[in-house]
Design a binder for these strands. Structure first.
Lengths: 204, 204
DNA sequence: AAAAATATTGAACGCTGTTCAATTTATCAA
DNA sequence: TTGATAAATTGAACAGCGTTCAATATTTTT
């Protein structure tokens, strides 16, 4: 059935070209400033045809959200090779910030933009997020098992660590802390300050 | 000049009734889902007339932003009565979270929604934010002076504390951590967990 | 080549922020 | 009180939005 095969390939190619165009526009103009017509124009297609690939604009967002969480997970799995628990946990935090700063538009879609719960299945997003969060909890648990922060509740510690990481990243992306044009040195400083205090928090 | 006076009073009354309607709609429907026509309808006015009070929709947001920062500052000044530096700093964090959870829609406008920098003077927003942040820096500085976190850079510590507070608040408001309906007990837990770790961070 | 299935489209609906000429309303001078 | 002036208010219009759907064009199957 060569024809059916080609058809399906064309379908998935169209699908991914829509996603690619959407993401590139989201990066340049921000989610809310991208319209279906703009996406269509970019790939020389019609806006209405997009609806045969995605239920609506939110579903395009969801697909990219999914990609984002996959990327984050991938990045997080890299540090799992480190054997010393505290070292691994700190590297985990480092990787988290790296992901966020290097893929700030993904991060924006994943954690910062408002997703109206009438139209959007927030539960599905939470499932994606949880699969990343579980890895953090695991790394925290192994620290506690190894004698760090004795008696501390694992979930509480994990939550606080995530908060701290998310906080600095969110402030940066929303430009609450700096307004000057991109400054790598300042970014590195933010990261090292955060890691410095994480080091303090994980203690024997 | 009684007429001129009354005129001006009517002007400011209209202005504040627009703001009031806008805020109430923002709370119910979220900033991006509120239109000028909706605001006008709410106060039985015309959309075009609003433009003689505010340059555009973003300026309404800016005005409410301003209100939000005033409210936050007010709340923060309350704890300045506490004399013991660490106690005051912790209370500061508590007040910050209280403000955010009690006025989550203000918080959303102030720190979470995307404000397009082409149309929006982010520098003005930063000035508003800085006047609140300075108080935090001051309280951190007085802790360090009192012998806490000896040798630690005041700005770095303040930044990390703010990150942590902002992080937990932002995750909650964006529903990244819970999806069930409002649960006061869970909220209290989040707050106490955060304060617990702040306590750990501020040490002699 | 005709029929059936699939893909694509433009027009339409009701919405958006914003502008502006036209109209209404209020103030002031004679 | 009337007429002129100033101010406030409005609806229509513009170009855009997400989305739907009947009509058209294309491709596949018979």
């Amino acid at each position: 059935m060569g024809i059916r095969e080609r058809k399906e390939k064309e379908k998935t190619e169209m699908r991914s070209s829509i996603l690619k165009a959407a993401m590139s526009l989201f990066i340049d103009e921000g989610y809310e400033n991208v319209s279906m017509r703009k996406i269509a124009r970019k790939i020389e297609y019609s806006a209405s045809s997009i609806y045969s690939y995605f239920e609506n604009k939110d579903m395009i967002l969801f697909e990219l959200l999914h990609e984002g969480f996959e990327k984050l997970k991938e990045k997080q799995l890299f540090v799992q090779g480190i054997t010393e628990p505290k070292e691994r946990l700190i590297a985990h935090g480092d990787a988290y910030m790296d992901f966020a700063f290097e893929n700030s538009q993904y991060y924006e879609l994943m954690f910062l933009i408002h997703k109206p719960k009438e139209r959007f299945d927030l539960h599905k997003v939470k499932v994606l997020g949880d699969s990343c969060y579980e890895l953090l909890v695991k790394n925290v648990a192994e620290c506690v098992e190894a004698g760090y922060n004795k008696g501390e509740d694992v979930n509480n510690l994990a939550l606080f660590l995530w908060s701290s990481l998310h906080g600095i990243v969110a402030l940066y992306i929303r430009q609450a802390i700096i307004l000057e044009e991109f400054n790598k040195q300042y970014l590195d400083n933010i990261k090292s300050v955060t890691l410095h205090f994480l080091q303090q928090l994980i203690k024997k």
